[in-house]
Amino acid sequence: MATGGRRGAAAAPLLVAVAALLLGAAGHLYPGEVCPGMDIRNNLTRLHELENCSVIEGHLQILLMFKTRPEDFRDLSFPKLIMITDYLLLFRVYGLESLKDLFPNLTVIRGSRLFFNYALVIFEMVHLKELGLYNLMNITRGSVRIEKNNELCYLATIDWSRILDSVEDNYIVLNKDDNEECGDICPGTAKGKTNCPATVINGQFVERCWTHSHCQKVCPTICKSHGCTAEGLCCHSECLGNCSQPDDPTKCVACRNFYLDGRCVETCPPPYYHFQDWRCVNFSFCQDLHHKCKNSRRQGCHQYVIHNNKCIPECPSGYTMNSSNLLCTPCLGPCPKVCHLLEGEKTIDSVTSAQELRGCTVINGSLIINIRGGNNLAAELEANLGLIEEISGYLKIRRSYALVSLSFFRKLRLIRGETLEIGNYSFYALDNQNLRQLWDWSKHNLTITQGKLFFHYNPKLCLSEIHKMEEVSGTKGRQERNDIALKTNGDQASCENELLKFSYIRTSFDKI
């Protein structure tokens, strides 16, 4: 039985969820670079991206490699990797027998973001014989899940209580170790020597080791999670996991709180800001991140802002960003909400898709409305799209047979046209069989910064309504002859009103 693990408890099935942008060198404390989270699957090609990484700022997932063999891993080693800020997950990587050479110096898994409450997941690794993470000293947050690894031993010899604050939620089941077939031998045991430290858990006094050649490092209890030197002297209180010299914040392997210019500090002093819960960055760093993602459509890219001495992905609820200094300031009234469309555009074809934009005031991208039916549609669209004030790209209304009016965009005031449909149009209306009105132009103002209007096959939309939009939106004169079809717009509506004058002759039985 794995020490510190839980057996036999019912657990939810383990679901495996399925960018080499360097964020800056980590400095003297770390020998390499800070790398983003990685999802490495199918083959070993991307694994080489770990070569210079000291910190993975995010998670590391290595999974679904069915053609790899043990010899493929023999020359692979990433000794610079010290810390993973989120979680480490391995799933069905064939041929991998140990992690001792792959990650010989991995010391800390912070667990800032977890995989279903777990910071370390080893699942269905069919050839893994031992973990071998002999320098792993601290899992700051989260638990361990090690399950269905039929060859995995050296679990009962690990004292997880020396690595985690609590072992109650560890789930370590259905491994070879369960069948008591392992016969784990710690260093020196074969020669009758006791080389590794022994600890007591559940009444068992057991030597602690990761492999037959690597003991588990056990520091004096007084050192807590700070770690200790090879001689057993406690590291500085700002260290986490390990250090090369005692009581020196510049000799830590990793930091308990924050890293700044080669030393570990309790908090980031001005003019620095907390970033990702582990390091200090200056304003320029946060500003660069903001600008890199301002026009990016890459998933996970955030326009970072500053709030409460932190550089964070977005302002919290009730705050909006001051564009001059990136500071989050309290909103006066309802907060603006910028919604970034991942692929640059979004099609609204149902109430469900409209709900995804609920509360958005600025759309960074283009909207395509293609709704053919739905219950209580006008009210639903207004509830979900009615706060949109600005669209950076274009607005396209296409084959939306259920629409009679666009009044559900009740606050839309600006279409920038930074991206144009077919390279020309910022407003595009095609084949809307029941569209009769755009907006009530006596109450609604709309500016279209650039781009043209396109109207074709809107049989109940009168040309007068379209011409009014040209005047109000500032697009009059931009359109070419064929942009607004004269014969297919309003051709099934009563669009022309003329005053009919009647004269009559009164007659009676005795007068003409």
Rank of each mutant, 00 (worst) to 15 (best):
K100N: 15
E180F: 07
A254V: 04
I82H: 07
L233G: 09
N42R: 09
I82C: 05
P220R: 06
K67M: 04
A119F: 00
N150M: 03
Y273T: 05
N322Q: 13
Y273S: 05
F283D: 07
P220V: 03
E124F: 06
Y30K: 00
T221A: 13
P249C: 04
N257E: 03
I146K: 00
C219S: 05
K224H: 05
R74Q: 06
A119T: 07
P79A: 09
I62G: 00
F103T: 01
T68M: 02
A254S: 10
N309H: 13
R279P: 00
C239N: 00
L174K: 06
P336Q: 15
G262M: 05
F78V: 11
I40P: 00
P249F: 02
G37Y: 08
S54Q: 15
G183L: 04
M65Y: 07
I122A: 12
S323D: 15
Q303I: 12
T189N: 05
G183D: 15
K310F: 10
F123N: 12
V126G: 12
I109L: 05
R141W: 12
C182A: 14
T45V: 13
M38W: 02
G183I: 07
L64V: 06
E49Y: 03
E57S: 08
N117H: 03
I56G: 01
P330R: 14
K251C: 05
C182S: 08
L106K: 00
L120A: 04
F91C: 02
G32D: 14
C315F: 00
H127V: 07
L164T: 11
S77L: 11
Q204I: 04
L99K: 00
P79M: 03
F205R: 06
D177T: 03
W278R: 02
N170I: 07
C153A: 04
N150S: 11
G188N: 09
M65T: 05
F91Y: 14
G318S: 12
T157V: 06
D178A: 13
F283R: 12
K176Y: 08
F66P: 15
N325V: 06
R297P: 07
N309M: 08
N242M: 09
V305S: 08
S112P: 00
E71S: 09
C209N: 05
L64A: 10
F115Q: 04
V55S: 02
L60M: 11
T320A: 11
L155C: 15
R145E: 01
L89I: 05
F115N: 01
F258E: 02
W210V: 11
N138G: 10
S143Q: 04
I139G: 00
F205I: 06
P104L: 01
D184A: 14
L164K: 14
T68V: 06
D247S: 09
D75E: 11
N309D: 09
L44W: 10
C280Y: 01
E57I: 06
C311F: 03
E97W: 13
D288S: 04
E151L: 10
Q245S: 07
S284W: 07
C186R: 01
D247K: 05
L29H: 08
G142I: 01
L60G: 00
I56L: 10
N42G: 08
K224P: 08
I62A: 01
C301I: 00
H236F: 02
Y94N: 11
N170S: 09
D39V: 10
V34R: 14
L44N: 11
L102R: 01
L96A: 10
L64T: 05
N325L: 11
